[in-house]
Design a binder for these strands. Structure first.
Lengths: 351, 351
DNA sequence: GTGGTGAATGTGAACGGTAACATTGCGGCT
DNA sequence: AGCCGCAATGTTACCGTTCACATTCACCAC
């Protein structure tokens, strides 16, 4: 005896139903088509009768169907994910870039997988990169500006396309940035043009790409004007370290201007000046870097170099996405920094 | 004629080999076990002879095997991902929390999927939540402090476990925060104890949970001291808006103190004072909120209320992970804010 | 020895999509 | 009429992992 297919049906009193999310076959059944047709609708295939497409769309709507990313990722072996190696600072700049990257990535149909670097030592970087690779990201954006990160990428022989937000001014396909060196030149030239010669540079910590680039810009421009650049005083980007640097600098009483590698440290320098009873810009001119939103409200409002962090983030994504799509990466031109003159600089007092 | 199975072998000159990443069957073959045994090693199954385990581990090592997340997610229908709804501000607070969340999530074996809210209107929130749900996140952390976000969650009938970083002071299982109201009370009381009575509150924008909570704390404490609280002046968290608020406030010349809902706006108020030729704290006392790292270097160093953003982020993750593991969420106790007295406050001048 | 027990391991079938190839139907050309 | 070609759709296999269940084996009690 041959039983009819699908014998028992348990129409009523069915067991508690495991409530599975609908898949393309459920949609197909409801729409009266094959699951492949549903897949074609999903992927915008060309050869589809409009009536069919509509039936499928309606069925999707009715079932509240959502395609399963994991299944798609499994079969295509594409994660549609971009990995970001981020430094663990809560500074304005990185935060602004990160956010812009997140938004741009989303608009391009990518998801971000962000690894925050707790420390910037070797194992931490390796660990973070390893995790990102393990998550099968399709490309990398290096927001962590430690020069080491780049070395690690090379060392781990990571073959993924990647973009770094920071550059030394020399561009290659992988690097994109506000030209930090040019920005530093701008700031330094501004002070030189005002007549300052005894200028000290408060630099960021060693090992950061920005630190090196801005330092170089300072030194180059000083040298170009025939002024011997004094050794930089290093901080760690915080206002606190800028304050410490300021105290140290003010001991040498012939300094007339300071170029700080970021705005927060400049704020610390301003603070140190007040402690020492010095006026800015009367006794000392100060230039910052970044133009964070607060800089205009410091006392005095800070002359600084503006960076467009958001634009930078967006460009990174554009560059990487182009690379992922196999497009020849159009050689990115730098985002240009801009000097914003406020009230913390003026010509040095005679004498 | 029946050919022998696997006839042609193309030993040499084989086609370019699609270089597939090794999977558990490759590992199994090399280790001389079944793929299931490899899976068991991967998942730390108990019944495994140590020698077998070692063989498998060696094989994994040799092949540089990495388990495929998508395949695992597909079959387990667990993404091991936490969704974060973040506001699009580059402020210190959210950035610090976000980073702590990212680190804590990683330590707990979860990945973050962050949706940055470009605007805080309805469609944007719905869109962001929709995307996170579509990405099959297992739980949500709401870093976007708009009250609306919570309404949207309810409205979309999202059944995912979620935690919000912001609270109105009243705790439920979902909310965790520095007690903003208590912080505002602290700040207000400090001014009242110094003898101030004409105190204006510079509040954040409407629709933010923090705005409401801090405003309430201010009003409650003022009322408790028998002082009628004047209507708040609203800003948008930026120093610029604090500056505008300051100018407006200083028109009413009998105000002796300002409590600003965050440090950046307080900075703007300080700026407005200088423009008006007023001294802080001589003519006006100013209290901020957050204690961002720069606050100690403002002029004058700002009295403010400290929030531990990182701790907050960590707790969020702990709470959510516990919920995901099915553990009874231990009722979170609030992170307590702390008054940091610096030099921007003093008793009002007599008269 | 026979059967039971549990540890250690293997087998086959999912999971939800996409790719490759097969099939159908229809209009135009010869 | 017969055939071709293409648009529209269907069929089947496969991606890499886990799950449920089956099998093997050693050991022990009877």
């Amino acid at each position: 005896m041959i039983s009819t297919p699908g014998g028992t049906r348990n129409d009523d009193a069915s067991p508690p139903a495991p409530v599975r999310a609908p898949n393309i076959r459920d949609v197909a059944r409801l729409a009266g088509v094959s699951h492949q047709t549903v897949s074609r609708v999903l992927n915008g295939h060309a050869s589809l009768r409009e009536t069919t497409r509509q039936k499928v769309v309606d069925a999707m709507e009715e079932l509240q169907f959502r395609p399963n990313r994991a299944a798609r990722a499994l079969v295509t072996s594409k994660s549609r994910t971009i990995g970001v190696l981020a430094s663990n600072s809560s500074e304005y700049g990185p935060a602004a870039s990160l956010q812009a990257i997140g938004t741009a990535a989303r608009d391009a149909g990518y998801t971000l997988d962000t690894a925050y670097l707790e420390t910037s030592d070797r194992p931490a970087i390796i660990d973070a990169l390893d995790r990102l690779v393990g998550h099968a990201v399709e490309g990398l954006i290096i927001l962590a500006p430690q020069s080491r990160s780049l070395d690690m990428i090379a060392e781990l022989s990571i073959t993924l396309p990647f973009v770094t937000v920071h550059s030394t001014g020399g561009l290659d396909d992988h690097r994109l940035s506000v030209d930090q060196t040019a920005g530093a030149v701008l700031a330094t030239r501004h002070l030189l043009e005002l007549g300052h010669r005894r200028i000290v540079h408060v630099a960021g910590p060693d090992g950061w790409v920005e630190t090196a680039a801005r330092q170089r810009g300072f030194q180059e421009e000083m040298t170009a004007w025939g002024v011997e650049p004094p050794p930089p005083v290093h901080g760690d980007w915080t206002a606190e370290s800028g304050y410490a640097a300021g105290r140290r600098i003010l001991c040498e009483n012939d300094v007339t201007a300071v170029f700080s590698s970021n705005d927060q440290m400049a704020l610390g320098v301003l603070h140190a000046c007040r402690d020492a009873g010095l006026e800015v810009p009367g006794n000392l001119s100060v230039v910052g870097f970044d133009d964070i939103p607060e800089a205009a409200h410091y006392w005095p409002p800070l002359t600084t170099v503006r960076q467009d962090f958001a634009e930078l983030g967006r460009r990174c994504v554009a560059l990487l996405v182009a690379a992922l799509a196999g497009n020849a990466p159009e050689h990115p031109h730098d985002v240009l920094p801009e000097l914003v003159v406020r009230q913390s600089t003026e010509p040095p007092r005679p004498g």
